[in-house]
Amino acid sequence: MSNLFYNAAPQETRVAPPRKPARTYPTGKPTQVYLFGTCVVDLFFPEAGMDAIHLLEREGIRVDFPQGQSCCGQPAYTSGYTEQAREVARAQLKLFANDWPVVVTSGSCAGMFREHYPDLFKDEPEMLAKVKHLAERTYELAEFLLHVCDVQLIDQGAPLQVALHTSCSARREMNTHLHARALLSQLAQVERVEHDHESECCGFGGTFSVRMPDISGAMVADKTQSLLASGAQQVVSADCGCLMNINGSFEKQNIPLLGQHLASFLWQRTQTKQEASV
């Protein structure tokens, strides 16, 4: 592995943005949205991206998936490589030129668009206006389904106990745990069980898990043991970076649990026979 992450010190200190007031949501569903699938979904969880599209299309919304999209720039940004993060951000901005909502299948990536792009371009007035406009129309998937689509889910599955994991950054910046909880509560046969470490980081943190592998490993061990102790039959999360870390730890410890992206879980639980046969 490259020594870049180990030898290069961050170039500047990051300060968490202050909490913002509750967001005001538009009335009525849009007819068209962009989907930002994230690099982790693209490479490791493509079914989550497809299931997100299915959920949105069922709401009568056309989904545009720009083929040139890549990383949101968060790994470079949180490692202190500001100029490299700006390059990535500029490339993504060009892909979302139409004035449509941007729906993101990861809370941490949605937070990058909404909370941190404005910081990246705070000294470039023209770009700052563009990223602020992007921030205003960016939604994490569960948030969009709940507050913009006003989705009403009808459970088609058998009784099941699930534990929810939410990205700590998305939880802090956008309350994504509340959105996911509300959607799961609509499923009549699904019981969400609590676990002791629900609000804690799973230890992934992007490059943190590379730079601090021992600490990261201890954190995910605590997380997975807590999930196991909850008695849940399945783990659900809206962040695939966390899922990759948690599922890897499950496998390493021979724990018979598997984490699934919220989009896939919701789609599978709510598919009608007609939809399943298509």
Rank of each mutant, 00 (worst) to 15 (best):
N3C: 02
L4V: 11
F5W: 14
Y6R: 14
E12I: 11
E12M: 13
R14Q: 13
P18T: 13
R19K: 13
T24R: 09
Y25I: 08
Y25E: 06
G28S: 12
K29N: 12
V33A: 09
V40N: 01
P46L: 03
A48S: 07
G49K: 09
R58D: 12
R58V: 10
R62T: 14
V63D: 09
D64W: 15
P66C: 07
G68L: 05
Q74W: 10
T82S: 03
Q84T: 00
E87F: 02
V88P: 02
Q92M: 14
L95F: 06
A97I: 15
D99Y: 13
D99A: 15
G111R: 02
G111A: 06
R114K: 14
P118G: 06
P118I: 13
P118S: 09
F121S: 09
E124K: 04
M127D: 09
L134A: 12
A135Y: 08
L141I: 11
V148C: 12
C149D: 06
G157E: 04
A158Y: 07
A158F: 07
S169Y: 02
S169F: 05
A170V: 05
R172A: 08
R172T: 10
R172Y: 08
E173F: 13
M174C: 01
T176D: 01
H177K: 08
R181P: 02
L183N: 03
L187Q: 07
Q189V: 10
V193F: 14
E194I: 10
F204T: 00
D214H: 13
D214E: 12
D214K: 10
D214G: 00
A218W: 02
M219G: 02
M219D: 07
V220G: 08
A221Y: 00
L227I: 15
A232G: 12
A238I: 04
D239K: 13
G241Y: 10
I246R: 06
I246M: 13
S249L: 15
Q253F: 08
Q253K: 10
L258S: 05
G259I: 08
Q260I: 11
Q260M: 09
L266I: 08
W267D: 05
Q268G: 02
T270Q: 04
Q271E: 15
T272P: 09
E275R: 05
E275I: 03
V278W: 07
